[in-house]
Design a binder for these strands. Structure first.
Lengths: 353, 353
DNA sequence: CCCTCGTGGGTCTTTTTTTGACCCGTTTCT
DNA sequence: AGAAACGGGTCAAAAAAAGACCCACGAGGG
């Protein structure tokens, strides 16, 4: 037998390590995002005994990674830098590197970032995905480029996690589509504005609902102001978007039972921008809307960053990303593993907390 | 704070790891060298409870690294390959890489290999040093070259650990000096013969005691057979030698108390080939002998490999190697750390079993 | 202002793990 | 044949981990 990586050696020699490492990292990461954090709340969060957390905190404090005050536990500078920089290493530990490579291969995309954890069990994963996507986003930024960003919690996380460091000049941020849903924080307009603010960039908004009758569309397209924004959107050089499950998105768009049934029969599993995709990546339905018009997503846009997490989105991710020339995909471990399951692949990875 | 290596990160996140790792590796290594090994003998060897070993063995067996039969515990193929290939990784874990770099810098040698463990506590370390030196030796072998090797336990270990894989043709192995001491296994002649056998090379022996009167020397030098061997020795392209402490070597050479006193007063700490070095590397005494005549060791020899281990040899190693253009130095962790102590350097490394 | 809530810390008991100390049957080598 | 060494089993002691609780403190809200 040939031992390839240091990680393998370590796991072989000390099989108990990965678990410890992962748990501790998760705790550290949680503290990173929600400091100051209390013992009890952490314990509740990870669904373990308080004493367990207590012990871990003690270790971490001895290591100088956290400080513990009356307000709760926070990270030291070392701790913060550890959370930020440990990912590549931890990833190899969790077998995420392997996951990423498999997904790049299966989905034919440029790059895949798998964030450790499961969005559905651990809200921190969402922020982590946001950070990962934000990192990619920043690398794609060029002077004078137009950045289109869609709505949803994933894109909101990207906006949240985007650092406020200086960006190239002349960037314009636009929402990829019109308004959808009720929560203002998750609407494309809101997110676009927040991103623009962080990048110190200009932004234009689309003050319209996403779903309109064809007639209304025709009228609005003649509006100069709206036309301008739409042109901007369609000249975007970067696109950041989430991915929805067909069912959920149909419901959110207020589809009636008949429409739902039709979608189901057509095998729709994923949705982006009002396009419903079946599992082989075909568009089965299209809700007319204002904004990015792409039946082949990303063919015109140079950099597309898709962000989605959670096991339940696995099929949707495959449907949407797997058959389009997306450049980047950011997802979580849960979704990544589920996708491999869908492809009938075994993944003998370390199972974690 | 900037985190440089994965090892640092791991040690920071899980400080209990290194210890586990090192202990388990040491056990594995011991089994590697003395399989089949019994629980009780291992426990006695490492001076821990039998049950501790038992538990470790269980883990290792679950990992498929060892098999346990009635004869004792042995390594599986995986286990063997682990022991052989883990060294670089483990070294970084033990901070040995740092040690090596410091020593290269301090002693001004081409390369330093530090073997984990302490020769004085763990006999396995000797074999490990032998293996390390043998590896270097094999790399230096070229067709038609003359290899001179001296006596002592260290060089014997090199001979033992030398694999019997095919070597370049036309190699001649010679003892670096005449006979010394009583144990035939550790005499240069014996070792040279064993090395030659393993390399399937020719060898010539020096059937003479190392210490002779000047008169006898003169006579013998005129002997053609002896002259031939001596010429061979002095045309050596590779030299493998151990390093002795001045005190020990003087005693072994049968020095009387007066001579001992003189050596002590002259500050002799190290010995090689009858040359006694003080701590600054000066030759303070020279016992005339037959063989390699080098007051500047290695000036004519292309590749010199010095092998020595144990804390008590630290000063000797510095004296001998530190001031000569030796190419390679193989030593153990104990000696390496002691040397840094001698140089007044702190070494905050992981302390092990 | 007090009162509540969440915080870290202390302490006790229970549970689990680890370790020590045996003994036993078998194999191996002398 | 017999001694020595092997793995394995077992039980009790010890240690470590975890659970459960209470306390004093301080921030924030009524």
């Amino acid at each position: 037998m040939v031992l390839t990586s240091d990680r393998e050696m370590l796991s072989l020699l000390a099989p108990e390590i990965p678990e410890i490492l992962v748990q501790r990292y998760h705790i550290l990461r949680k503290i990173f995002y929600s400091a100051p954090a209390g013992r009890r709340s952490l314990a509740a969060y990870f669904q373990v005994g308080e004493r367990v957390i207590r012990r871990e905190i003690e270790v971490l404090r001895n290591q100088g990674l956290v400080t513990v005050e009356h307000k709760g536990v926070s990270l030291t500078a070392t701790g913060r830098s550890l959370v930020k920089s440990i990912t590549p290493f931890l990833k190899s530990f969790l077998g995420l590197t392997v996951l990423e490579e498999r997904l790049i291969d299966l989905l034919k995309v440029k790059d895949v970032i798998v964030v450790p954890g499961d969005l559905e069990n651990d809200e921190v994963v969402l922020w982590e995905m946001g950070r990962a996507a934000a990192r990619i986003l920043r690398k794609c930024l060029k002077e004078g480029i137009v950045l289109a960003i869609s709505g949803g919690t994933s894109c909101a996380a990207v906006a949240d996690m985007l650092p406020e460091t200086p960006a190239p000049a002349g960037i314009t941020v636009v929402p990829a589509r019109g308004g959808l849903g009720e929560v203002v924080d998750y609407q494309a307009n809101t997110i676009a504005a927040r991103v623009a603010q962080k990048l110190k960039a200009n932004y234009r908004l689309l003050h319209l609902p996403d779903s309109l009758s064809s007639k209304a569309l025709q009228v609005l397209l003649r509006e100069k102001k709206i036309k301008e924004v739409l042109d901007l959107i369609n000249s975007a050089g970067i696109l950041v978007h989430g991915i929805g499950t067909a069912e959920e998105m149909a419901r959110r768009r207020g589809a009636d039972p008949r429409e739902m049934e039709r979608l189901y029969k057509q095998g729709a599993v994923g949705e982006v921008f009002g396009f419903f995709y079946n599992s082989t990546g075909g568009v089965v339905e299209h809700i007319p809307g204002l904004g990015l018009y792409l039946d082949d997503l990303g063919s015109r846009v140079e950099n597309v960053i898709a962000v989605a997490g959670g096991r339940r989105k696995a099929a949707a991710i495959v449907a949407v990303v797997g058959n389009h020339p997306h450049d980047f995909l950011v997802l979580d471990e849960g979704a990544a593993k589920k996708i491999l399951e869908l492809f009938g692949e075994a993944h003998n990875n370390i199972n974690l907390v």
